[in-house]
């Protein structure tokens, strides 16, 4: 961190990101990575009291005088839990990516983070749709909020978190809703704030789906044909390219939905027990983001206890899915509060 702070600022690209509840200054060694963040992070469109600020140095070994990231001694083994524990003793958080060695560290006291990459865009492959997500996670967690691995749908500001395992239909449900009159603040990672009301905020602009999934939902844009698939065979597209309104900035959350690809004639919504919802939301939300795991589990447990939870057995018709969920958000979800 000292080296990053001492690095000549004249050689770095500065960006000020005004995101949901946080102002983040990022010093980029690479314009390519700055551009990726410009495309992907969602600037807030409303004014609320700022919860926190952070300053991040996004360095890479292609920058003059910046050393390549050190490689972990493979013979020593690696325990992510022990790594987290040692850093936490110094009020720091961190992550080591083994494949193309890179490090991310965050100091919670100073709210300063540093990332050191082997190349300009040498981030882990799953972060291209959510760059800087760990810094956001650590900064939000420090003030009691959580970057949450869940999708969202809403209507008239009244929304639901959509949770479930990979392949359960979270992104497809979100896409069906967004293209057919509903709102969303994101389909992968959203900020959740547990206050007098539960609020989800948009942080990342991209929606992801496999090419066929986009086509089944009725997407027919040039970007779809031109896009490359990501590391999971998905395509990531800016929500504003898919529908004119793009993502909503924020929505109040009143229910938790667990989609299930049922291919039934009509989409069915049925109430489920809270522990089923907890199993769908909490482990994934905790294990997807390193650090602050115990606090994360308590946070998500509280959310599950606050929200009525429903299983959504999906039909194959995106218009019908959106209609059913829209009716639910207007009616059943309200009654279930």
């Amino acid at each position: 961190m000292r080296a990053a702070k001492a690095y000549p600022k004249g050689r770095l690209v500065r960006r000020e990101f005004r995101l949901a509840r946080i102002d983040m200054t990022v010093w980029f060694a690479s314009k390519a990575f700055a551009d990726l963040c410009d495309r992907t992070l969602v600037e807030r469109k409303y004014e609320e009291p700022l919860a926190t600020r952070a300053q991040i140095y996004a360095m890479d070994a292609e920058a003059d005088g910046w050393e390549p990231p050190a490689r972990w001694n493979e013979e020593a083994g690696f325990s992510s839990r022990e790594f987290d524990r040692i850093l936490a003793e110094h009020d720091r958080r961190g992550f080591y990516h083994h494949d193309a060695p890179s490090w991310q560290f965050y100091d919670r006291v100073d709210a300063v983070g540093v990332q050191t990459l082997p190349t300009k865009l040498g981030i882990p492959p799953w972060e291209f749709g959510s760059p800087l997500r760990l810094f956001l996670h650590w900064a939000y967690a420090a003030v009691g909020m959580r970057l949450t691995h869940a999708a969202t749908l809403g209507l008239n500001g009244r929304g639901a978190l959509i949770a479930g395992a990979s392949g359960s239909g979270k992104s497809g449900t979100t896409l069906a809703g967004l293209l057919n009159g509903l709102d969303s603040v994101g389909d992968d990672y959203v900020l959740v704030e547990d206050g007098p009301s539960l609020v989800a905020h948009s942080v990342f602009a991209m929606l992801k789906q496999d090419r066929e999934g986009f086509r089944r939902a009725g997407v027919a844009i040039a970007e779809l044909d031109a896009a490359e698939v990501n590391w999971r065979g998905k395509i990531e597209l800016d929500a504003s390219k898919l529908c004119a309104k793009g993502l909503a900035s924020r929505m109040e959350i009143h229910a938790l939905l667990l989609p299930e690809i049922a291919r039934s004639r009509r989409t069915e919504v049925e109430k489920i027990a809270s522990h089923e919802a907890a199993l769908a939301l909490a482990p994934s939300a905790v294990f997807q983001l390193p650090g602050d795991a115990t606090e994360g589990f308590r946070f998500f447990a509280d959310i599950v206890k606050r929200l009525p939870a429903f299983r959504v057995k999906l039909s194959e018709d995106p218009v019908e899915i959106a209609g059913t969920i829209g009716s639910f958000l207007e009616g059943t979800g309200r009654n279930a509060d």
């Binding site: 809270s274 522990h275 589990f297």
Partner: peptide, 16 residues
Amino acid sequence: DVVSEDFTGQIVILNL
């Protein structure tokens, strides 16, 4: 390493 929560009488446990 282990945390648990009670959801109206149903326990969910995580081994972190």
